[in-house]
Nucleic acid binder design. Structure first.
Lengths: 153, 153
DNA sequence: TATTGTTATACTCTATAACTATA
DNA sequence: TATAGTTATAGAGTATAACAATA
């Protein structure tokens, strides 16, 4: 039990509010990106690859907090959409790498603009101090709680 | 475009961090409640009914930001688990009401305790000022953005 | 044997749309 | 016709587990 909560004031659960707001924000974003033929999860994967040239599926799984199987399926869909290419790793016969195609790379800024617009829609009305605090706190949770170790696989 | 973001610093999207943290928190909570045979979405529905005696499916759909069809299916599962009962509304032959069974009502505090524990796990390390700020900001977003009107149906 | 990745399977969550019964 | 609800269908997202290839 948290020191600041009791079972009686149910609406005070931060996890509840986080989920509620996050679901709405993601749904709104999903609607924006679907015109470009991609989903939110696909965008997240593409974004991981933007600065990286190429990444192993297992590496992506760790970063995104998903299993390797889930990444495989996500990658399949992006490959079918010609956003991604899979290639064998010459150094290790078991390994594969995933990289953006030029089409995929070209799409990222458009999606990023939509993400900007979505952020603006949900967060621009906040005082800039609150907006900064929200970002800082979320990052702190990720860092302190070491979020990324979830998928046991 | 938000005034505080550009397409180049992609990791600054609040929506991204919100989603990332929320997914981890919800997944951890899902693991805790599954021992009691319910899912997170089921818990949210049960919780809506705790203070209400009985609600119409359409009312729940509006509150939870889901379609009526989705509520129907969720309710089916909870009824199969004997947590919920469906009853005809005597005043309107079309209408139904959903209410917790005594077993359902008895389970809520146990789930609430798990929610407390989950919250503690993810948020207790924050300074209490930050914890309060997070709750306040999330609530403000819900209020100002009027979140609940999403499902068009 | 351990590791990388894929595939098979299953289930939750959710939407859209068609349908039923009542108003 | 309009409304309340359910059902049918579909697809995303994700997990677990079995499998294949390589190390």
């Amino acid at each position: 039990m948290s020191s600041t909560h009791s079972a009686s004031d149910l609406t005070d659960h931060l996890g509840y509010w986080l989920r509620y707001v996050s679901n709405h924000v993601s749904q709104a974003f999903a609607r924006k990106v679907e015109a470009h033929g991609v989903t939110v999860a696909e965008w997240v994967l593409m974004r991981q690859l933007l600065d990286e040239e190429a990444l192993a599926p297992s590496h992506l799984a760790e970063r995104m907090g998903m299993t390797r199987g889930a990444i495989s399926k996500l990658a399949d869909r992006l490959i079918a959409k010609s956003m991604l290419v899979r290639a064998a790793d010459p150094k290790d016969g078991r390994a594969q790498t995933l990289a953006l195609t030029s089409a995929g790379r070209a799409l990222v800024p458009e999606l990023a603009a939509l993400a900007d617009a979505n952020d603006a829609e949900f967060f621009d009305h906040l005082r800039s101090k609150d907006r900064a605090a929200l970002l800082r706190i979320l990052r702190e949770i990720v860092e302190k709680r070491g979020l990324k170790s979830l998928p046991v696989d």
